[in-house]
């Protein structure tokens, strides 16, 4: 474990806490893409299939359980909780996210570290996470003004994988046999998808103005 990866995991956890706070405090999920939340639930379920078989550390197991439980809880809130469900922007959240699932799984069948059930689902989860934010970014562009907590949620979610890139650089420089091309390339693509969001987020922070993504 290095400081970049720990900072990345804490930023990821923070993004989830900010989203939970937004939904709990405002009893609303306006501006939040249910489809992105569903994709993230699939990402965690596919990536942590080894939750009970491979013990890495207490921290690792604890965080996996937190990520799985929180992503399922958020999807449940948006789908089932009567007050939250009412505020879901159904007609704005129209990205065909099942195509992202199909494409990621197809890619994982061809590009993986080992042709085993766990490794294919792990690669699938890496590819899917790289594109999981797309429905959310499209929703933000369509819904015009973005409330602070939703903007902070997306910012921290994008920043966490950026910190992981620093972690991979650090591990590549300090560990002799460290090569994680699948995670690294996907992580760069994932962070690059946030580029324009980061730009507008920075502008809104600098001008102390409302975050607005151009349509």
């Amino acid at each position: 474990m290095n400081i970049f990866r720990l900072a990345g995991d804490m930023t990821h956890l923070l993004s989830i806490l900010v989203l939970l706070l937004k939904i709990y405090a405002t009893k609303s999920c306006s501006g939040v893409s249910r489809k992105t939340q569903e994709l993230y639930a699939i990402v965690f379920l596919a990536r942590y299939l080894d939750l009970f078989t491979d013990f890495i550390s207490v921290y690792n197991t604890f965080m996996k359980i937190v990520f799985i439980a929180s992503s399922l809880a958020i999807v449940w809130c948006i789908r089932v909780h009567p007050m939250v469900k009412r505020s879901y922007d159904k007609d704005l959240d129209t990205f065909r996210h099942y195509l992202l699932v199909a494409a990621s799984f197809l890619l994982a069948l061809f590009l993986h570290e080992k042709f085993t059930f766990l490794e294919i689902f792990w690669a699938f989860s890496i590819y899917l996470e790289a594109v999981a934010i797309l429905p959310q970014l499209v929703l933000l562009q369509r819904s015009g003004n973005v409330d602070n907590l939703t903007g902070q949620y997306v910012f921290f979610l994008g920043a966490y994988r950026g910190l992981y890139i620093l972690n991979w650089i650090y591990r590549y420089l300090t560990e002799p046999r460290f090569t994680r091309w699948i995670a690294c390339v996907s992580g760069v693509v994932q962070t690059a998808l946030y580029a324009d969001f980061f730009y507008y987020y920075f502008i809104s922070w600098k001008n102390n103005s409302k975050l607005k993504l151009p349509a």
């Binding site: 990866r5 995991d9 990821h12 990536r47 080894d50 491979d54 890495i56 690792n60 965080m63 996996k64 990520f67 570290e113 080992k114 490794e119 792990w122 992981y164 972690n167 046999r177 994680r180 995670a183």
Partner: peptide
């Protein structure tokens, strides 16, 4: 000992 293909990252 974590061998290489163990995904030790989240």
């Amino acid at each position: 000992e974590i061998d290489d293909d163990d995904h030790d990252e989240l």
